[in-house]
Design a binder for these strands. Structure first.
Lengths: 217, 217
DNA sequence: ACATGAATACATGCATGCTATCACATATCT
DNA sequence: AGATATGTGATAGCATGCATGTATTCATGT
């Protein structure tokens, strides 16, 4: 694996991004062991940055580290998945509620741009890109809340749930996904500064996402 | 610094605990630089476990790491503190709401034990111990929610807020602290399975905690 | 006096070798 | 046969040296 020149600030960051890429593209399977040397050799770095990346992923719940034993990719149960969405709902609803009262014009534009990019990824049927810009939509809202800590927590939970989509929705049908329409509605509610509507729409949106994960594929 | 035999599973964990101890006991000041070698020499370990501990603290918002530059202890603004409490309120209120419907007898007893220990620390005027058992009270409730992810997030935010108490309430008067009475009321509401009351009490409790931090000392 | 730039000191980033620990298989004893 | 003890392989944990990047200082020039 050739490391692009200077695309990442540190090797640890490179390994982290690359591991996430491999998770999203299903090159890694839930429960799979992730030996440090293994990854280090594959990515052309030493074990040190690999360790760091693994621990970062562990803090996002994507990797399970057992002391003196090793790391393996998480294999969340349905229960854990539901639990995660329960937390996500809390955090994102408060997030969008605050954002509704104070979102800037600039962030409203960023939201619209994000939706445009979602549509592009949708047309291209590029799942990885789609997940990325989808994540971005939610990130912008968390950001617009002006609450840094909240945004940090949302960031963490987005990392988890995005992986879950890949883990448990192997035939995830990007064609039928109604997320974009829901995103448009949320963006509109934010534009109108309609707090109640924005919160209700977000709640509904997340409930449906979870439903999508639960439905048999 | 002598490392007690086998009290910690790894050196990294030891350094992490020790750093937290030094934060709580005000041996470290907000904004202070935390050079790896420095800490490593003081604690009789190498830089590797120190790096790991620092990054863990960074994920809890207690340490700020600037790539290629170094780590320093966080110096949260009042705004950040309020933001943190806003998140904490969301997480702990949902936590106690769920706990009210399903808390086990065993966890109810653990809550009562925790309150007893709080009273003991209170009498001894042992701030560090008090913070620890106080944290424990909230941890048990998060645990009782049965939502592992939620408990994990609460754990993270407890680490933050406990440090804030030390950072911004230097003359924190443990004598006047009404927390224990509030904890008793919350435990009682949980015992009665009164969801509404438990949530209201928790919200009030956290609001007052934040107020305590804001009041001039 | 101020701005600019080079040199230097210092801290982190990373690689690598050694050690401790765990898991598993094999052997031994009851 | 079952349980316990022992040995072996593999992997994570840690220490350390070197490379790289950053910040500071001081000299130089305008």
């Amino acid at each position: 694996m050739i490391m692009e020149p200077r695309l990442y600030t540190t090797s640890a960051d490179y390994v982290y991004q690359e591991l996430r890429h491999r998770i999203i593209t299903k090159q890694l399977k839930p429960g799979q062991r992730l030996p440090e040397v293994n990854i280090a050799v594959q990515m052309g770095v030493s074990r040190t940055p690999v360790r760091e990346a693994l621990r970062r992923l562990a803090s996002e719940g994507l990797v399970l580290i057992i002391p003196n034993s090793g790391a393996r990719l998480a294999s969340p149960t349905r229960r854990e998945m539901e639990d995660t969405y329960a937390v996500r709902e809390q955090l994102e609803c408060i997030s969008v509620a605050i954002a509704a009262t104070r979102i800037s014009e600039r962030n409203l534009r960023r939201l619209e741009d994000a939706i445009l990019e979602e549509e592009k990824a949708f047309e291209e049927k590029n799942l990885e890109l789609y997940l990325e810009v989808n994540e971005n939509f939610h990130r912008i809202i968390a950001d617009a809340s002006g609450n840094r800590v909240l945004a940090e927590f949302v960031e963490n939970i987005l990392a988890r749930t995005n992986a879950y989509v890949v883990f448990y929705d192997p035939f995830y049908d990007i064609v039928d996904n109604p997320s974009i329409a829901q995103h448009k509605a949320i963006a509109q509610a934010l534009k109108e500064r309609d707090r109640e509507k924005a919160v209700d729409l977000m709640r509904e949106h997340l409930k449906l996402s979870l439903y999508d994960l639960n439905k048999p594929s």
